[in-house]
Design a protein around this nucleic acid. Structure first.
Lengths: 244, 244
DNA sequence: ACGCATTTGTTCGTATGTATT
DNA sequence: TAATACATACGAACAAATGCG
């Protein structure tokens, strides 16, 4: 009559393998963009069949943590490659795909977390944080004004100059220079009226409606490593989303 | 030396099975919520192995066209069940999950497609359309004002009374009464200022910023069957999204 | 309450196809 | 051409969940 209580911790083999692979990624055993061992090697290492490894990798590939390439191998997901650059950015041009994205860093300073920022980043009030302001433009037109907060402890040496000098997405800089890998994000979107400063930078009139996109970015193990608030000008651009 | 030109139309067995299953769904062989034949039955019918059927169903389940239930069978996706109701609605309360969704139909009329509506629904200007206006409220507070256009030819007999009488999501009504199944949707979101009428209905001041959410809903085979524009009041609610 | 049949879920093994280098 | 890696396909067995008698 005691029964098995609840057996809270059962998981099939392939999921245990998946967890081991995530640990390998998290521990830095394989770098972003690098190949992980072949399915047969992993099967040998973990003493399971190739099919079980395959199922674990399938799930990781579906979550974009890994990318499979037939004939070549399986690679660690990254924000640095052309196909996957800006994969978190859902802004699209109303007309076509005519891009031409440019960035301008307005500010980058170190400070202490306010209560609000601390809550968002799972820190304590007063903990060190980095605050970045930047403007994204598409084809000469300013479209996104971002305010970004990062935990200071993980981003030692991040400066405005470093940001400005780097060619490529900010998330790629985070990967290569700070070992911080963003693998998923949650966004909350609302409509707000532009204040005077934002309006000036985004080239709209004060009070104009803007999207306010709050984003929490996570690394392995549901760890929040970034909070940002983006103000999107949607006069001739929009935020796109797929539902299913 | 002629070579195979390009072999534009090769697809693996499991994908051919997948296509056959979609044809069955599209042809109404299995109704929303009903069980499809077991994997072994399907394997026998199509003369392939169970594993091949399984892979086809896996993909369809990932797209929410089918739902697997261990020990019970595989079922056709629907908007009618508690778990999957309002699965296209991404609005969330800022605080918790405290829902309590109520609907009020403001208008439902038949008319002719304007050029804009015709383009959105892949119709010709002047084709018959149904236009619906409705208001969604969460816990007594109005939150979404929807304007919905449907192709008139497919929704004969849809009236304001029919809409008001039906208990359950509108997409469920479409499934059971009109044989129209929405399986995916695309949304384009921007920020706009509330006009006088919208402001009154949503209980905000005129000019208040609102989300304008344009949605195109598709049935099997990428067929557009609905266009709607929702105005979302985001004072104490937000549009949530997951990125990966 | 128990056992049985059904159905999906997991795991293994093997063989062959296709893409890459 | 050959070797390697992922992709497809088949077969088999057992586990777990469900529903029925």
């Amino acid at each position: 009559m005691p029964a098995v209580a609840d057996t809270p911790a059962f998981s099939p083999l392939y999921r245990q393998i998946k967890d081991l692979l995530v640990k390998g990624l998290q521990g830095g055993e394989w770098a972003p963009g690098a190949a992980i061992p072949s399915e047969l090697e992993l099967a040998a290492r973990y003493k399971v069949s190739q099919g079980t490894v395959r199922k674990a990798i399938d799930e990781l590939a579906a979550e974009n943590l890994l990318v499979r390439r037939q004939g070549k191998g399986t690679f660690v997901g990254t924000h640095a490659e052309a196909q996957t650059q800006y994969r978190f950015l859902r802004l699209a041009d109303d007309a076509g795909i005519a891009q031409g994205l440019t960035r301008r860093f307005i500010d980058c300073r170190r400070g202490r977390a306010s209560a609000e920022v601390a809550r968002a980043l799972a820190l304590k009030s007063g903990d060190a944080v980095v605050q970045i302001q930047r403007l994204l433009s598409l084809a000469t037109r300013p479209v996104v004004l971002d305010e970004i907060w990062l935990p200071g402890a993980l981003f030692k040496g991040l400066t405005a100059e470093r940001l400005a000098d780097y060619r490529g997405p900010m998330y790629a800089l985070f990967e290569t220079e700070f070992g911080v890998r963003m693998i998923r994000a949650e966004e909350k979107i609302r409509a707000v009226a532009a204040d005077a400063d934002s309006a000036r930078l985004l080239d709209v009139v004060a009070g104009a409606p803007l999207l306010a996109v709050d984003r929490w970015s996570y690394s392995y193990g549901d760890e929040v490593l970034e909070w940002r608030r983006g103000l999107y000008q949607t006069r001739d651009h929009h935020y796109r989303n797929q539902l299913s």
